[in-house]
Simulated scan of single mutants.
Amino acid sequence: MTALLLRLAGPLQSWGTGSRFARRETGRVPTKSGVIGLLAAADGRRRVDSIADLVDLRVGVRVEQPGRIERDFQTARTRDGSESMPLSYRFYLSDAVFLVAVEGEESLLTGLRDALRRPAFPLALGRRSCPPVGKLEHGLHPGGAERVLTETPWMASKRTVADNRAQSVTLDLVVDCAPDTVGADLVRDQPVSFDPANRSYAWRSVAHRRVTVPNPAWTPPPAQAAHDPMDLLEPRR
């Protein structure tokens, strides 16, 4: 097994799962459909193109820093300006960072890695208004998605990492799992087609874990010499 490692970071992200009409929510973690859509865009696939070879990829997400929910709203009028349209509410994740491992065949992942380095279409973190910042792909790694996300050191923002003095941190992990996994949740987030005329999603099972990983900014405290209170006394003459 091989996993392609992605770091998703940006001022804003938005990962919708069931939003419709005038209220567009965001999930707390990237969706599989959003990750597959990002890979398809990098690979130059249009919405009407097949994604059959991508939907079986196993996806795991580790929350490096959860960010916070921000709400925006938009106003609009009809084209002739005579009537106001309903307010449209948009929800985003601000200042969030995620580490995503995409597990699959090495040959397919190699092509996707190369596509991410030279994407055919602009990439987005859920919505077109949310471009990624920083290095997106972090190479191919041996092992499954869960193993890679357990072994990779913390990759939050530099400031967040530097401000944490702990030797290790415990992070949330969401990963694809078998339907009979104890405690698994069902989410309607398995992309079938991105075709605007026939957009379709199926159900998938996910497991929630907690993993402890090293903090790369941690340094051991300096060694202190043994304290002898008698050192403060002047020697006898």
Rank of each mutant, 00 (worst) to 15 (best):
T160R: 12
V161Q: 10
A162N: 13
N164C: 15
R165E: 13
A166N: 13
S168T: 06
T170S: 01
T170C: 00
D172L: 08
V174D: 05
V174F: 05
V175N: 08
V175C: 15
V175P: 05
C177D: 02
A178R: 14
P179R: 09
D180L: 14
T181E: 07
G183L: 10
G183P: 03
A184Y: 00
D185I: 13
D185A: 15
L186Y: 13
L186G: 11
R188M: 15
R188C: 11
D189Q: 05
P191Y: 01
V192D: 10
F194W: 01
F194A: 00
D195Q: 06
D195M: 08
D195F: 06
D195P: 05
P196Q: 11
P196V: 10
A197E: 09
A197N: 10
R199D: 07
S200I: 14
Y201R: 12
V206M: 02
V206S: 04
V206A: 03
H208P: 04
H208I: 09
R210F: 09
R210A: 08
V211W: 00
V211I: 09
N215G: 02
N215E: 08
N215I: 03
P216T: 03
P216L: 06
A217D: 03
W218K: 00
T219S: 10
P220I: 04
P220F: 05
P221I: 09
P221N: 12
P221V: 15
P221F: 09
P222N: 06
